[in-house]
Design a protein around this nucleic acid. Structure first.
Lengths: 223, 223, 223, 223
DNA sequence: AATGAATGAGCCTTCATTCAT
DNA sequence: GATGAATGAAGGCTCATTCAT
């Protein structure tokens, strides 16, 4: 009764997000989704034109809802936040979009689904890359550029951006394996803010080091 | 001679590593593998007892070969390396195991295959976790413990370990998406040493910061 | 006005005639028909009770319209035409009913649809056989009987009737294949009168020969 | 036991010929065929690559077997037969290929299947047209040319050929409908020779008439 | 009177697996 | 030891039909 008011279409998308995330595109059957969502198998074809159409819709929905709930950071001139604050907001947004439990259904699968696309993008991801991911990356690089100054070569900026994103994404996707090898590890979705805080600080330190070394005669042999 | 008279069994494993890595378990058919390896479809069942058996063998082989070529770091007492050097060795080994091109076939898929298992472990991964991954993680935590001292709580150690691994893994798996949104990005497998170097330095900075803050009244409000 | 405000029901029948004729019963979907006719898919069930109901209506309409536009030949006593003239009228009517382009929509498919039913009658054809085809055949046999006299056995009459009908029907249905193997062939629907004329003459000759041989000691060895 | 020695592949083709002929391509399911042939549904895909592949094989087999059992007529110079005899042979061959019961399975459907293709050729028929039908038609036209002499225009030759073929084909395909409207009609496959004889004589008469009229001022008004 | 939403049955195809050789 | 033939299970999709409005 609590879920009754949601339309069948909506319900299919939520269920599909979860199941696609859990099993991947190929291993998911529309029969699983239909059964879980309480609709007929034909409904998927009726609403989305097929399995692929549903998948594309799922991907798009994840991003559109994600960015509408946790908006990206404003570019430099349009906000009063310092660069550090912008970085913090960026990291928090990225992690929340992937793993925040409240908000909409299909939580556990959402992060894994995105990470799968990042490892091995499908056709359905192209649109999302242009619309959401590329701008997102541009914002991060501009933040880093502001934080690290002009001495740091473009290449280093990019690598640092990847270092930051890599952390966010692994926290969002690696939960399973981490929990298995480190039982004392705190579950991500119940401790998001601790994670966000950690990634932020670790990255601040990393950036500082990269900046420092780029200024002088950085080298590993210095160690 | 060792690679010349490669047995059918061996050839199937190599081919399978590549194809599984590229397509995932479900989307890979044993017919693809058999065709590529030049053997009969029934051979897979004959040698490995089925698709799942082959997959398990592939996973096991990746790790056994990986760790034999790029051995893990020795525990503290058994080596003369400093903690920093041990961290560097750890990072380099981890990345090389995932993406180094030389050594054995099916490279491009190898990293993706492992990352997939890390996101969503299958039955076949259990064995590998116990035999390779858990010890590997223990080594890393002990290195960090030595580097950061006793003031840093266990929790922070673990989070830092994940931050380091997250970078390694993302560099190994996110190549596709990175290359698409940042064409100026340097391809991982052609620049492994630059990547390794960067991750090492970035992590040094991050660890330093975490250590620093753990010492006093660390807090975000300090920013 | 009569064709201007054409009702939805009417429009469905015309469209269906065309599409059924082109694709056959099974390969035609009511969605094709509904889309082409500009109505809802449910309309077919609403008006005709289902796909089969619509098909039956289409078949019936083809014959009722066909015979109303190109009436059958009057029996002997009720007309002043000679037997030859009656045969000519019969042949012309038969061919025009199948392929005449003017008159009503869905022309190209009409002939093929009828021929399909003749090869392989469906339930829907039973009614049409009793109402139109059997009387039609009776008329032809009576014409032949008059032309060939009493010496010719019933069996020969029937065979001759089939020879005449076979020509008409093949001209109406075999257009596709004929055009493909004989490009110099004249398209039926643009040269109906030439065809009609030819079939008439060819049949006159055939009938004469059959009559001749039936009179004496007909045999192939006479050749 | 009697059919046991036939291979599964062979048995599928025979069954398929019958069922395709009865129902057409679309309305036939491979399940019907598999059940009737006593094989698994997957066997169709295994042997023929799919429903369409099987269909193509069926069409090809009908013609290759048909022409190998009832060869076409030799061209003029290569035989001692008179033109009349060659026409007789042509007609007999054509009808036998379509309806002769002895020889191979799937009789009842064979003729109908071909006629369906003649009404509405599918992709699978293209090959057959080039290989069998076009040469066949060429032979007939050359026979007619020899019989009717040079005065008859090409156009008339072609129309006459169609008149002859139309009869053969209708006898082979229209059995159902004929039997229903004329119970006294003799079943084709039990009386092939009578039919062949009739078509031959009727056609001789038709040709004579066409030739006669082509010589002078032929016209319908002459009647 | 007419329609859009939704369904259930069935079809073609794919694929891992088995078995006789 | 290794293979080609054949199969059963299951999946995506199509389509006529139904039902509430």
């Amino acid at each position: 009764m609590e879920q009754n008011q949601i339309s069948a279409r909506e319900r299919i998308i939520e269920t599909a997000t979860d199941i696609f995330g859990r099993n991947g595109f190929k291993a998911t059957t529309i029969r699983m989704i239909a059964a879980e969502a309480g609709v007929n198998v034909a409904a998927v074809n009726y609403y989305f034109g097929g399995k692929e159409g549903l998948y594309a819709e799922v991907i798009e929905t994840i991003f559109s809802k994600g960015f509408s709930r946790f908006p990206s950071v404003q570019p430099d001139g349009e906000t009063e936040m310092t660069a550090d604050e912008r970085l913090f907001t960026f990291i928090r947004g990225t992690i929340y979009r992937l793993v925040s439990p409240e908000g909409w259904g299909g939580i556990s699968g959402r992060g894994r689904l995105i990470v799968k696309e990042m490892i091995e993008p499908t056709e359905a991801f192209n649109h999302v890359i242009d619309k959401y991911i590329r701008p997102h990356k541009t914002v991060l690089v501009s933040i880093l550029s502001e934080m690290m100054g002009g001495d740091v070569p473009e290449q280093r900026l990019l690598l640092s951006a990847v270092s930051i994103l890599g952390q966010c994404i692994y926290y969002a996707s690696g939960t399973n394996i981490i929990a298995r090898i480190a039982p004392e590890y705190l579950p991500v979705d119940k401790n998001i803010d601790v994670i966000v805080d950690h990634v932020f600080r670790f990255s601040l330190g990393g950036l500082a080091r990269i900046k420092l070394e780029s200024g002088g005669t950085a080298a590993r042999e210095k160690l």
